[in-house]
């Protein structure tokens, strides 16, 4: 088992290396970079001191060197102006646009993004699993039809549109301003009870909006999976033993139907970061999505590179978690490893 995990972690490291090269190449594909663009602009306006500062930054980050050297410096395999200082050493680089280290720009946004989306994921499972179980066990009844209809509506309504509608009515009916993640007055305050309460209140609408599409999709898939499993002979065996219906359902078919969802964790985690860009923009949530969009547009290379690498790392970690969970859940896979 430990050998398996070690082997997986080694492959993950190699994969990350390949991804980092791809990310860097893609970011570097468009001609120029943030600083050269800026220098051209500054030259046009004739601001000599700013030009000098920009040129200093260019030398400091080695943007005048060949691309492959820039890459090695970025990941920290080659000494730059300040020695080895790259992703491997925990230095995530400099955001030219914000004129701050990337860590400072992204910091809070990263955790808030994870918080919002994790809440959404929990919401999705809490709503979808009972609804799917009800829907599958009461197949072709009125209740099933209602759940199905709501599911389709949830699938069909675009999240950002719903966000706009909620934004409007929440303000009109309850006088709530639900943009952002806490009251604007608390933005730069330390974390107090009041701030946390405000955060929780502001979480409700984003959770609903982000989670709705996922809930609908999960109800449909879970229902289909369960219906398959309910028709399997071992479900009949459980009933023939005299198990009460709910217990028989949860212990056998339900547990079998979980596998595809566990296998999905790997896709879920990166989605947590990059999945809700539109909704975040509409609700002006301080998440990573809008930051990434902006960084890519302005060729803020270290910023964009870091966020992309973070998403990639999350994907790989998610895959590892889902594989390990599957091993733990399913003895067939566990025995296959021996």
């Amino acid at each position: 088992m430990i050998a398996v995990i070690l082997r997986r972690i080694l492959t993950m490291a190699a994969t990350l290396l390949v991804i980092s090269a791809l990310v860097f190449v893609i970011i570097k594909l468009p001609p120029g970079d943030y600083l050269t663009n800026q220098i051209m602009e500054l030259r046009a306006t004739g601001d000599a001191s700013s030009v000098a500062k920009a040129e200093l930054l260019i030398r400091q980050y080695g943007l005048d060197r060949p691309v492959w050297q820039q890459y090695l410096m970025w990941i920290g395999l080659m000494p730059g102006a300040a020695g080895f200082s790259g992703l491997l050493q925990g230095d995530w680089g400099w955001s030219f646009e914000y004129d701050k280290p990337v860590a400072d720009v992204v910091g809070d946004a990263l955790w808030l993004t994870l918080l919002i989306n994790l809440t959404a994921v929990v919401f999705v499972h809490l709503v979808a699993i009972p609804a799917a179980i009800y829907s599958a066990t009461h197949r072709n009844t009125f209740g099933d039809a209602v759940v199905t209809l709501l599911g389709y509506v949830g699938l069909a309504v675009p999240g950002f549109l719903l966000a706009l509608i909620l934004l409007f009515y929440a303000n009109r009916w309850f006088g709530l301003s639900i943009g952002g993640l806490y009251d604007s007055a608390l933005t730069n305050q330390p974390w107090t009870w009041e701030k946390i309460r405000s955060l929780l209140g502001h979480l409700i609408v984003p959770t609903l909006v982000i989670g709705l599409g996922g809930t609908a999709a999960m109800i449909r898939r879970m229902r289909a999976n369960l219906l398959d499993e309910l028709a399997k002979p071992y479900t009949v065996t459980a009933r023939a033993k005299g198990l009460p219906p709910l217990k028989a359902l949860l212990k056998y078919p339900f547990r079998m139907s979980l596998n595809p969802f566990v296998a999905d964790i790997g896709n879920l985690l990166p989605h947590l970061v990059s999945g809700s860009v539109l909704v975040s923009l509409v609700l002006s949530l301080p998440t990573v999505g809008p930051l990434l969009l902006e960084a890519l547009r302005s060729q803020d290379q270290f910023m964009a590179g870091f966020i992309l690498m973070f998403v990639a790392a999350l994907t790989l970690v998610g895959m590892l978690i889902s594989d390990l969970t599957l091993v733990w859940l399913d003895p067939r896979i566990r025995m296959g490893l021996r």
Partner: peptide
């Protein structure tokens, strides 16, 4: 349910699919 499995029990044709693999 008290009769099922206690007083009347059943075995099936496919011993693989009738037992849960988990």
């Amino acid at each position: 349910r008290a009769i099922r499995g206690q007083r009347i029990a059943m075995i099936f044709q496919e011993p693989m699919t009738c037992l849960s693999p988990l």
